[in-house]
Nucleic acid binder design. Structure first.
Lengths: 245, 245
DNA sequence: ATGTTCGACATAACACCGTTATATAACGGT
DNA sequence: ACCGTTATATAACGGTGTTATGTCGAACAT
């Protein structure tokens, strides 16, 4: 009797919660393996062995390897967002804009494998992100869009709209960073040159005056060392909703 | 006796040439599978079954799957070079420059999987290109560098040098195309807008006057339909040295 | 013309991958 | 205390690239 009522009302009867420690531990191990040994080390068996459990832990906690690399992508965007949160609003919005580009590149060069999973992920484990996952990337871009808006309001940028300009910065820096990360494609010293030229050229291209743009880009370079001290908390993943403590 | 002399002189005794048809057939099948069914269909067993042979054919002809995808990369750069060879020198070098960008994007959007292998190849079959393979990409870029030189000589570009400008165009368009190919990252209509803005902004950013740059970019768009009729010869691979007939 | 030889190809096995079926054990609600 | 549900372990399945082994055919030397 009560069984039937329970079935009709709520089916939550008596589940067994998974060990709350294993899930973050798996993410942590996966992130470490990805950073230290590259994508080929990111296998279910390896991760399970490293965690002292079986491969089933990956499936109960993430539903498969796809869910785990999805978590990696979230982590990657979270780190990018962390860097973005460290660029302060100054009196020179164009310099702030350039600093966003530098933060983006700094994040990619600091976590190259993670960045590769974020955007080249279609190949890893035959996994590709869904539409809803992509929203994380677009949410990250809103910070840059706001900065572009400030540049437009300040009269520094005169061409295009804020969304378009933010996308221009994104695609340009992403292209450079991607080719920079792929070995033997661009020499490292050349990448540095191209990046600076790309940054200054973009500012001029969207309407800023050449001398002012050059000065802003130069100023933003002086603010780059701040990112060296940014503390990336490995536990500060985006999936904090199930890690309440 | 003569055995010893033969050994000392030339070791070429009596090899069995591999069937001259199988190697191009495998490349052709691989290219077709990649284009029609994507990277996950690019397996040794599948290719061998399609060719009616065993997986060993891949190893005798290419030394493994790595060699086969290397051939795919060559094919990809050859197609890009084919498109590049179709941009003619006009009186407006900036329009030619912009057309190179359009040719690059057209090639990537026409052969998306091939493009992904060319630059995202680190993930496919755990294969990454070597330094010598990368030279193909840089050779392809020389055409663009020459065009940038013409722009500089014409006084249209005033900032930077030809190599730097060509790299700026490459990285910018590559970044846009990469994000455009990754699904759900950029809306298609937005990609079009960003590309046009990227193109015009780059020209202005490297020193061209805004109205002239806008006109050149617009003119280059009118020349784009020529690429629709470009005939990509599937047999015109870069490894023609061993296909003498 | 004939024998020899060496490599291309086929078959089957190996090691590894992600995934899943099954059994067992541990937890939460009644 | 019981019982159901679910996490976990073990082992297996189908798939991958790769390799060992054997066969056979084509090209050279005689």
């Amino acid at each position: 009797m009560s069984n039937i009522t329970a079935l009709c009302h709520t089916v939550k009867v008596s589940p067994r919660r998974s060990n709350p420690d294993t899930r973050p531990a798996l993410v942590d191990i996966a992130a470490r393996l990805l950073a230290t040994e590259g994508p080929q080390a990111l296998t279910a068996r390896r991760i399970a062995a490293e965690a002292g459990s079986s491969t089933m832990a990956v499936y109960t906690n993430f539903g498969g390897m796809s869910g785990l690399v999805r978590e990696m992508v979230y982590e990657g965007f979270a780190r990018l967002q962390t860097y973005f949160s460290h660029v302060e609003h100054t009196a020179d919005p164009v310099a702030d804009m350039a600093l966003f580009g530098r933060a983006y590149r700094h994040n990619a060069l600091t976590n190259p494998h993670l960045y590769a999973v974020m955007f080249g992920g279609a190949s890893l484990a035959g996994f590709s992100l869904g539409a809803e996952d992509r929203q994380y990337g677009r949410y990250t871009l809103t910070t840059v869009i706001e900065c572009a808006t400030r540049c437009l309001e300040a009269g520094r940028f005169t061409t295009g709209d804020a969304v378009l300009i933010a996308h221009q910065l994104w695609t340009a820096v992403h292209g450079l960073v991607t080719l920079e990360l792929g070995e033997y494609l661009i020499e490292p010293w050349n990448a540095e040159r191209i990046f600076e030229a790309q940054l200054a050229g973009l500012m001029v291209g969207v309407g800023d005056r050449l001398p002012a743009a050059a000065r802003s880009v130069s100023d933003s370079r002086d603010r780059l060392p701040e990112f060296q001290n940014v503390n990336i908390d490995p536990a500060a993943l985006l999936d904090q909703e199930d890690v309440p403590s």
